[in-house]
Design a protein around this nucleic acid. Structure first.
Length: 557
RNA sequence: UGGGGCGUAGCUCAAUUGGCAGAGCGACGGACUCUGACUCCGUAGGUUGUAGGUUCGAUCCCUACCGCCCCAGCCA
């Protein structure tokens, strides 16, 4: 499934890079995407991926995938693999695959250098004391009593920290910067902490001290020759520390950190903490639940990599934080699939129609184009029989003139087939409509009837030859555009985010569908086979997104 | 109340760095149509957060306010 490639729109980061290139600062551009493997990637990460990999593609240059794996308490191999799969699925190839843990030895050596130059010290304060000494937003902090330890003692203590001589929480390595700095990140930040008993997914039990993000990230970037280190806004305060680290060690590279606003999407949550909760509390079926804003969820839902890339380019990159309407994501999929998806017919809420003047045992084979505007997508055969299903919503006993589907004593066209007239409505004892009796006009295949206009077109499937299917309709996971804005986000969970339709009937050609195919069910939306639950005998379709519907919005029912 | 950021149409973003405030999406209306889709045409929508100042001229420069976001993990 391919689409046209449009070049990514410019943004302030690309402009900075262009200027740096013109100024001769760099020969080529190197970026990186640095996820922490403590959860699955979501659509917000996609924004960063498209930005970083997109820049590497366009300038051109390279982009590494680097796992920021400095906290083994939260990280797992499962997430490493899931993240790699997501990046590949989005259509990108990293230049090099790295782990921050690849640099643990070098990180240690740079820490020794900082100690030797008097820029770092081993601190014996407890976590509570450190918090106390740090001061507040408005008051300066106090210097640690261990701040002026002799270099030799610091060296010895740090070596013994590594050797495992001290208990968790008893000592840290701290940068020696300025406890009175108005930027709290500069108040002698922690560089290393002690963590015994953890099995790191990459380094096993080799280390019992782990470096902090603020120390690890700039060095990892520099070691990889990154030219532009792109991150989200909350790290803006950390940039002085990023620069301080690189300015105070012997390293021949100083990447430029540039911050941009993270993505917020209406009617969903994007924080890993909340997504993890949804999974653990079983509010969804897993990280890949089709209602989740994770890449895995969107993939299972049926979103195409192309549509996600389009979306990321459409929303732009700035420093102004905002919330993007869900419709923008949906439209990116519609735009891609309208051009690319073959059309099919599926009846989601079947109502039997007997075509009384159609021979009982006959089957008429009709040719139908797979796409109204693209003949290259070919044609398929439709099987018309005496008994068919139409959607319950496509019939009313009476309706006003704006309603252009089937009414009693009215006509409608069966998509790709004939015009029928409804002559009789059959009801059960309770007054429910259970069947329609219609007659077809044999002279209306591929042409309009003489002397009258039939405005409506509805979809249908043979009742005897159609295949049973389950269809899952998804709605937004939350009822509120900003879940948890003023309260606990659980209160905003939409109880009707999943509707399962068991008795759907689809045209026979859909029985052979493959998981990676997307279809437009005409007049309904875009659908794909569920990759997990679909079975040969009972296909399960996910509705990726409905068709735009300007009718439903107008007050009618 | 310290520090760092951000305020342009309903949403997301532009505006050649001081020269008539635009686009896409959405909304609304219409045309077309064997998908109430797609496509096409059109309309509405703005005190550029507010108030001053500089200037012939300010979204842009200056000042002061206002609002929102982030920061006091041995998380990232």
């Amino acid at each position: 499934m391919s689409g046209e490639t449009t070049s990514a729109p410019s943004n302030f980061i690309r402009q900075i890079i262009e200027k740096d290139l013109q100024a001769g600062k760099h020969a080529t551009i190197h970026t990186r995407f640095p996820p922490e493997p403590n959860g699955y990637l979501h659509i917000g990460h996609a924004k960063s991926i498209v930005l970083n990999f997109g820049i590497a593609e366009d300038f051109p240059g390279s982009c590494n995938l680097r796992f920021d794996d400095t906290n083994p308490a939260k990280e797992e191999e499962e997430f490493v693999e899931a993240i790699k799969e997501d990046v590949v699925w989005l259509g990108y190839a990293w230049s090099e695959l790295r782990f921050a843990s690849d640099y643990f030895e070098q990180l240690y050596e740079f820490a020794v250098e900082l100690i030797e130059s008097g820029k770092a010290f081993v601190c014996d304060l407890t976590p509570e004391q450190v918090r106390d000494y740090r001061g507040t937003l408005t008051e300066p902090g106090r210097e640690s009593p261990y701040r002026d330890r002799p270099v030799a003692e610091n060296l010895d203590l740090f070596r013994r920290m590594r050797a495992g001589e001290f208990v968790d929480g008893t000592r840290t390595l701290r940068a020696r910067i300025d406890m009175a700095a108005p930027n709290i990140n500069m108040r002698d930040p922690t560089l290393y902490r002690i963590r015994h008993g953890l099995i790191h997914h990459q380094t096993g039990a080799e280390w019992c001290i782990y470096p902090m993000y603020d120390y690890t990230h700039p060095i990892s970037d520099a070691l990889e020759g990154i030219t532009h280190s792109l991150c989200t806004l909350e790290f803006e305060d950390h940039r002085p520390l990023y620069d301080w680290v690189l300015d105070n060690i012997t390293i021949g590279c100083h990447p430029r950190q540039i911050e941009f606003a993270r993505l917020n999407l209406e009617y969903t949550v994007m924080s890993k903490r909340k997504l993890t909760q949804l999974v653990q509390e079983k509010r969804v079926y897993g990280w890949d639940d089709p209602r989740m804003p994770t890449i895995a969820g969107l993939r299972r839902r049926g979103y195409t990599p192309e549509s996600i890339r389009r979306f990321c380019e459409a929303i732009g990159v700035t420093k102004a934080e905002g919330t993007v309407e869900m419709g923008v994501l949906e439209n990116s999929l519609r735009g891609h699939l309208d051009a690319a998806a073959p059309r099919r017919m599926a009846v989601l809420d079947p109502l039997k129609v007997v075509i009384t003047n159609f021979p009982a045992d006959a089957t008429e084979t009709l040719q139908a184009g797979n796409h109204p505007k693209d003949e290259s997508l070919g044609t398929r055969e439709l099987l018309l029989t005496r008994e068919i299903y139409i959607d319950r919503a496509d019939f009313r006993e009476q309706a006003n003139k704006k309603y252009k589907r089937l009414v009693l004593d009215g006509e409608v066209r069966l998509r790709n087939a004939y015009v029928i007239r409804c002559n009789e409505v059959i009801k059960d004892g309770a007054g429910n409509i259970i069947e329609l009796r219609c007659a077809y006009d044999a002279d209306t295949l591929g042409r309009n009837p003489e002397g009258r206009k039939v405005r409506g077109v509805i979809h249908w499937v043979s009742a005897t030859l159609g295949k049973k299917a389950e269809v899952r309709l998804y709605d937004r996971l939350f009822k509120s555009p900003e879940p948890g804005r003023t309260h606990d986000f659980h209160q905003d969970i939409n109880p009707d985010s999943l509707r399962v339709l068991q008795d759907c009937v689809v045209e026979p050609s859909l029985a052979e569908g493959r998981v990676d195919e997307r279809f437009q069910f005409e007049r309904e939306g875009y659908f794909c086979l569920d990759s997990i639950d679909s079975r040969p005998g009972l296909p399960v379709f996910n509705r990726i997104v409905s068709l735009r519907d300007s009718w439903g919005k107008k007050a009618d029912e």
